[in-house]
Amino acid sequence: MPQRPRDGNVIRAAVDSGGVTLLVDESVYSREALLRTCYWFTDRCYLFVSRASSGVFSVRIRAKADGKALDTISGDFENALIDQQGRQDIERETARLRELIVAKAFAEGQDLDDPPVGDDRDPVEMARAKAGRTDGER
């Protein structure tokens, strides 16, 4: 019976006959990150994903006959899961910045009816320009 991963032990691997079972805590790794990781790995190993309990996915990994060793594949899978979750976190955190960059690009081409929200000028450059003016006035 799979157990829920403990705090600080997000993925616990159990090895049984020919396969490794990883428990993935959904509070740490999103379902989308898990699915994208699985998608990367279906050509390298056999995967079966189920619900171990509420908020925990169980991923059973079996090596293909002509593939890498099971230990290597499961390690790669765990790393890929971290990588995929990191990508999602960064994408979410930088979404606003990307919107501003796109808005600015279109605004420069005068393709937008409304001006982009916020001030896209470099605050450091503005401070320098202001300081330069002040120095020049002295």
Binding site: R36, Y46, F48, V49, K64, A65
Partner: peptide, 19 residues
């Protein structure tokens, strides 16, 4: 292997649809 290939195929198709 045949069963595992079948399950992998379902997983691939499902992820395509869901994402």
């Amino acid at each position: 292997d045949l069963m595992d290939e079948f399950l992998n195929h379902i997983l691939d198709l499902s992820i395509h649809r869901k994402l």
